[in-house]
């Protein structure tokens, strides 16, 4: 029952500590100015209360120096806070290179989580401490928002595009996972548990799960790539009808209209669903759409595969384990 009167959120990730310092600074600032101005007002109101009906106070017009003072000091405080918050924000959104990707699909009203080794969880999320994870998220229907208060991370999950966040857990425990973008009837039931474990316990959990284990994300993607006959056009033969997929991911691609785009998750997704939208230079618009034939999770598996054959070229990716 002592949990009932706990007014501080758990802090269980690497960003939580520094962010809380900033929040405490802002709380201090709020208390300082509210009490400062508020008590001054009350003091004036009592000290200079009207003592008889016809009292006429002296008239004071204003004071330029004071106006400057109370414009510039708040400005400096505001800019300092802006700088502090923005620097931290850039750190919070920049993905560390060694982050392990995890794929998240939101739908009314559940969270589907796919680990790189193919394990799936619904509204449950097991992770070890000390490992950085990057979440690549999309939605099957409306906008959701993925929020773990104890980690201080939140990002909208938008249909038709991918959004990402990363975090590294620092403290074992079970934490809340919420949807924070209103998404309909059971919005408040679109919640889950994040179970943070020690690396050893995590290994044990992994082993226990391996009974019903399926193929990894990359394996599933490789299978889909063959099953759906992507391979017939995208295998890199001379005269092939589609561009080679090896080494494309994350690189700039020149389009038929001269534009250059980066082949990221969103571009690959769009090219699968709307092949003619951004055609690679030198190819004909002959690819059929796969809209309605692949679900969001299968598209993510294909992306994982295309990503993996990129890293096979040289750079070491942490995802093909």
């Amino acid at each position: 029952m002592n949990k009932l009167f706990n007014f501080f959120p758990e802090s269980a990730s690497t960003v939580a500590g520094p962010l809380d310092s900033l929040i405490w600074f802002l709380i201090g600032l709020t208390i300082f100015f509210t009490l400062g101005i508020g008590l001054t007002c009350i003091y004036f109101a009592v000290r200079y209360r009207r003592r008889h009906v016809d009292e006429q106070p002296v008239q004071i017009e204003g004071n330029l120096k004071l106006e400057m003072l109370w414009t510039i000091i708040p400005l400096i405080i505001a800019l300092g806070t802006f700088y502090w918050g923005t620097r931290m924000f850039l750190g919070m959104i920049t993905r560390p290179p060694d982050a392990v990707p995890i794929y998240v699909v939101g739908k009314q009203w559940m969270w589907k989580i796919q680990h790189p080794d193919g394990r799936r969880e619904i509204n449950q999320f097991h992770i070890p401490i000390g490992t950085k994870f990057q979440l690549i998220m999309t939605s099957e229907d409306v906008i959701h928002s993925f929020y773990i208060p104890a980690f201080r991370v939140k990002m909208d999950v938008v249909p038709g595009r991918y959004s990402t966040i990363w975090f590294e857990a620092t403290k074992e425990g079970v934490y809340h996972l919420f949807c924070t973008q209103y998404c309909g009837t059971s919005h408040s039931a679109m919640v889950g548990k994040v179970i943070v474990m020690s690396p050893a316990a995590y290994e044990e959990w992994l082993a226990g799960q391996s009974v019903g284990r399926k193929e990894t994300m990359v394996e599933a993607g490789t299978r889909l790539f063959t099953e759906r006959a992507c391979v017939t056009c995208h295998d890199g033969r001379t005269g092939a009808q589609g561009p080679l997929m090896r080494g494309v991911f994350g690189k700039p691609v020149e389009l038929s209209n001269g534009q250059v785009v980066v082949a990221d998750e969103s571009y690959v997704r769009e090219s699968i669903l709307k092949p003619q939208a951004k055609l690679v230079k030198g190819f004909q618009p002959v690819m059929p759409t796969f809209a309605g034939q692949l679900n969001e999770e299968q598209i993510l598996q294909l992306i994982a595969y295309i990503r993996s054959i990129q890293s096979a070229e040289g750079t070491t990716g942490g995802q093909t384990k």
Binding site: L22, I23, T81, F82, G85, M92, S145, R152
Partner: peptide, 18 residues
């Protein structure tokens, strides 16, 4: 003054839509 929390990029990530 609590608006300053939400104008702040890093803090808003935690507090947005709460």
């Amino acid at each position: 003054l609590t608006g300053l929390f939400l104008a702040n990029l890093a803090v808003d990530i935690h507090l947005h839509d709460t």
